[in-house]
Design a binder for these strands. Sequence first.
DNA 1: TGAAATGTTGGGGCG
DNA 2: ACGCCCCAACATTTC
Length: 489
Amino acid sequence: MADAPVIVWFRQDLRLADNPALAAALATGAPIVPAFILEYGDSAWALGGASRWWLHRSLDALDAALRQRGSRLVLRTGRADDALPALLHETGAGTVFWNRCYEPAAIARDTRIKAMLHEASIEAKSFNAALLHEPWTVKTQQSEPYKVFTPFWRTLRVLTKEKPLGQPPKTLPDPASWPRSDILADWSLEPAKPDWAGGLRAVWQPGEAGAQARLRAFIDTALVDYRECRDRPDRIGTSRLSPHLHFGEIGPRQIWQAIVGRTEFATNGGNEASKPIDAAAEAFLRELGWREFTHHLLYHWPELPARAWKANFDEFPWHDDAKSLAAWQRGLTGYPIVDAGMRELWQTGWMHNRVRMIVASFLIKDLLIDWRTGEKWFWDTLVDADLAQNAASWQWVAGSGADAAPYFRIFNPVLQGRKFDPDGAYVRQFVPELAHLSTAHIHAPWEAPEPVLAGAGLRLGTTYPRPIVDHKRARERALEAYQSIKAGA
DNA sequence: TGAAATGTTGGGGCG
DNA sequence: ACGCCCCAACATTTC
C-alpha cells in the first residue's frame, strides 16, 4: 500500500505553511492528493457574492502554489458526503486528513463524514489550523465557556505559546495518476454580467502570498501606530488580514508569532522605541483575541447567527422598513460617515471596523431594523464574511450579545465622523459628491448655509440626500423601544 | 470600542 | 469692594 495516496481535504485552510493536515500527510511519506469540494449552498448561509469572488481567487492561488511544488488542487462539487468517498475510491486512498471548521453545519457534516469513513475502514483525522485553541479547551474555573471577553483574554494570553508549523518541502509527493478535476472557471464563482469585482481586484490579493505580504506590510508600517490609528478609517491603520484569516490563507498562530517575534526584537534593542511597539502589539493581539472569542462563542452557542443571545431581545419591536433599508444598503442615508462606509463595503468588499460599528448602530438604533438584516447584508457583501465574527459583532452592537455594548450606547454619526475622520478624507473618497464641501460641514451637510452648499456644487435632496431620520429623535425612539423589552432582562 | 443631561466650579462683567 | 448673574469648562450621572 506504499502507493496509496493520502487525501488532504482543503476547506478554510487555503495555505501550505502552518497547515497541520498537510504536515501530517507529508509525515506519512505517501503521495498526496490535495482536494477542494465546492458544496452547493442549501443553508441560509450559502457563500455570499463577495466571498465567492475571493474563494475563486484563493483557490486559483492555492493551485498555483501547489503546481510550483509538482502538485495540484483537485476540484470537485456536490455534497462532501458523496464527493469525498468518490475521490477516495477513484484514487485508492485509504486516508484523508483535514483541518477543522467550527461552524455548526460544518461540525455536523464532518462528524457525519468521519463516522461514515471509519465505518468503511478509512483513516480520517482532523487538525486545528484556524484557532489558537480548541473552543472546548478554554474554560472558566467553573469549567464553563467564557461569556465575557476580558477574563477570556487574560486566560488566552497565558495559554498561547504555540508556534506555527513551517513551510512544506519544495516538492510534494504526487500520485501515480491524477484524478479528474473540475475547471475552476466553470464554477462561476466570479461575477460576469455584470462584473462588479473591479473594486475588489484593485484592493485585494487573495491567497497565501497576498496574506503574507499584508502581514509583513502591517508589521513594517502600521503596527507602531496601531493604538492611535486603528480607529481611523482615513488611514491604513489596521492589518486588513480579516479575509485572509477567514479563508485560512494565514493562521492566527502565524500572526501571533510574527507579532510577538517582532516585539521581542524591539525590546532587545533596549531603546525607548520598544515601548510603543509592545503596547501596540498588545492592542493588536487583543483583536486576534476577539476573533478567537467569537469563534468560541459560536461553538458553544450554535444559535448565535440566528437568535438573540440575550433572550429578552427576542421581543424587540423591530421595524420592517424596506425604504430605509435600501437607503442604508446603497449609502444614501444622508449621514456622510454612514454612507461612506456602506459604499466602501460595496466597492471594495470590506469596511473599516470603526465604521462597521457606526453603520451597524445606525441600522439597529436609528432605523430600528433587526440586526439580522444587517448581518445578512454583510454576509453577502464582505470578502471577510465569517459566521462567528459577523453574528457576534452584530449582536454586540445590538446589545443582545455576549459582553455586548450596553443598549443605550447609541453612536452619533456626526460626532463619530468628526472624531475619527477629522479631515473628512474618508468621506470624500467614498462619497465623491461631497468632495468639495469644507471640512467644517463635511459630516453634517444639512447644517451648511445655502451658499456654502452651492459653492461645493451640492443640492441637498438632489445631488446628495437629506438625512433620512433625525438622529436626535431617532435616539429617543430607540431608547423607548429598548425600554419596552427591559423588563425581561 | 458613547452621548446627552445634569451638576459643579470659577472667572469676569456689571450694578 | 461686594454680591449677583452668566456661562464656559469640566465632572458626574443617566440613558
